[in-house]
Design a binder for these strands. Structure first.
Lengths: 234, 234
DNA sequence: GCAAAAGTGTTTCTTGTACACCCATGA
DNA sequence: TCATGGGTGTACAAGAAACACTTTTGC
C-alpha cells in the first residue's frame, strides 16, 4: 500500500523577455512564459507548462531538455536549472504524480517557431492556468528576480552581444521595475560579469551616439555576490 | 518502457552545532550531521542519511517528518526545507530511485536520544558515505552557509534564548570561519532578526559580566537581505 | 545647431568591518 | 583590584543609488 503507482513529471517554466501588445494598442516589453493550451480534459482550455513524464533511463535535466524539444528548438534554451518539487498527492486528478519544476531561459534575440497550441504569455497577465502551474510560474519568477541580483544569470536572457540599453530593458522586464543603466553597468563591470567587445553598434533611427557592445564573460551560472553580510575575514 | 517502477525516497540532511572530540584530546564546536550506519548490503558499513520511501498518501515534507521520527524526536527539528533532487537512473543499485533531499536543523541546546546505529558526525570529517549521500551533505552545507548570510535561518540552530556569545559560536561552527560578535549583533539587530528578552544570564564560572539574552523575532524562515544590488527604487 | 542616445564623473547614503575603549561580575 | 567576559562607540572602506554633465551620432 505504500508505493503503488507514483508517476514523475518534469515541468519547465521557460522565460523570455518579449514585446507584448499593450492595453492602448501599443506594445510593452515584458517577461513572457511559454505555455500550451490543453485540448482535452481534465481542465480542457486551461494553459499548462511544457513538460511530461520522466523516462526510466533519463535524469531530470535530460528529461527537461527532451520535453522542451517538443515545443521549441532546444538550442535556444541558454540556461536550465532545477527549482522545487510539487508533491501533494492530489495536485492532479488521476494517478499520483510528482512534479519537478525547472527554470529555462531563452535569449531576447531569438524567436523560435512554436506548435499551434503553444504561445508566450506575459507573466503579469497569465491566462487560466492548469492545476498548480500558476504557482510554479510565480515561484520561478521570484527565483529569477533574486538571482538577477547576485548571479550572472542574465546571460540566459541576453543576446550574444548587446548594448547596455538592451541589457537594461531585459533587467527592467524581468524585475518589473526601473533599473538605471549607468549603475547596472558599474555593478556588472565591478563583478567582472561583462566584457567589452571593443566594437560598437550603429546608432538608432533617431540618431544618438553609437553604443558600445558587451558580452557576458561567462555563459554558465556563477554567483557574483556570495555574502551580503558575514563575509569571511580578510 | 518509459515508466516502469520508479521509486521515490526522501533523504534529510539534519544539522546541529555540537562539541566533538579534538585531535589533541580536547573538544571543538562544529557543525554535525545525523547519519546511520548500514548493517546490510549494498554498501554495508557505510553511513547514510536518514530517510526512506515516500508513501502514496503523503507529500514530501510530511514524509520527511515521518522518516525523521524514526531517528530523533521530531519536535527537536526546528526547521525543515526542500533542497534539490538527485535523479541519476543509476545513483543506487536495484530499482530506479529518485531522491528528494531536505535540510533539517536541530537547536544546539537539545541532545535527542538516538538509535544504536545512528550518530552525529562532524561535517569536516565525514565517514565513508553511502552512494551519493556525501554530495548531498556538501550541498546542504553550502545552502545553510549562504542562508545564514541573508535570512534568519539561524533560529533553527539556536536555543530559545541565548547570549550573543552563544550565537557567535553557532555562526562560527556553521560557517567554518570566525565571526565578530559585535558586528553580528549589529547586523542582526538592524535587520530586526533578534529581540532582546530584557533578562540576563548569570555570568560564567570565571566571572565576567552577565550577558543579555536574546531570542529570534520570528521562528519561520524569512529573507532579511533580499537584494544586495539592483534594489527597487525608492 | 539641435535632438537623441550613450557614457562619465561626482555626491551621498547605507552597510559592513575593525578595533579601541568602557562596563559588570566573581574570586 | 584584577582577570574575564560583555557591551558600546568611533573610524574606515566598499558598494550602490541618484543625478548632473559631457560625448557622439543623425538630421
Amino acid at each position: 500500500m505504500t508505493h503503488g503507482s507514483t508517476l514523475h513529471e518534469v515541468l519547465i517554466v521557460v522565460f523570455q523577455v518579449r514585446r507584448f501588445p499593450d492595453t492602448h494598442g501599443g506594445t510593452k516589453t515584458e517577461l513572457g512564459v511559454l505555455l500550451w493550451q490543453r485540448a482535452l480534459d481534465p481542465q480542457a482550455g486551461t494553459w499548462s507548462l511544457p513538460g511530461g513524464r520522466l523516462h526510466d533511463d533519463e535524469d531530470l535535466t535530460t528529461s527537461a531538455r527532451r520535453q522542451l524539444a517538443e515545443k521549441v528548438d532546444v538550442r535556444e534554451v541558454a540556461h536550465l536549472e532545477q527549482l522545487s518539487v510539487f508533491s501533494d498527492p492530489h495536485r492532479v486528478p488521476g494517478p499520483r504524480t510528482i512534479a519537478s519544476t525547472y527554470l529555462g531561459l531563452v535569449p531576447i534575440s531569438s524567436d523560435p517557431r512554436l506548435p499551434e497550441d503553444t504561445a508566450w504569455h506575459p507573466v503579469s497577465d497569465l491566462p487560466a492556468m492548469s492545476f498548480d502551474h500558476g504557482i510554479m510560474v510565480e515561484n520561478a519568477r521570484t527565483r529569477l528576480a533574486a538571482k538577477l541580483s547576485y548571479t550572472n544569470i542574465a546571460f540566459g536572457l541576453a543576446p550574444a552581444e548587446f548594448a547596455m540599453s538592451t541589457l537594461r530593458e531585459i533587467y527592467c522586464a524581468a524585475l518589473g521595475y526601473q533599473v538605471d543603466a549607468t549603475n547596472l553597468q558599474r555593478v556588472l563591470k565591478r563583478r567582472d560579469v561583462l566584457t567589452p567587445t571593443g566594437t560598437t553598434a550603429p546608432s538608432g533611427r533617431a540618431g544618438g551616439r553609437p553604443p558600445a557592445l558587451f558580452r557576458f564573460t561567462e555563459s554558465r551560472l556563477r554567483v557574483t555576490d556570495e555574502f551580503a553580510a558575514l563575509r569571511p575575514p580578510g
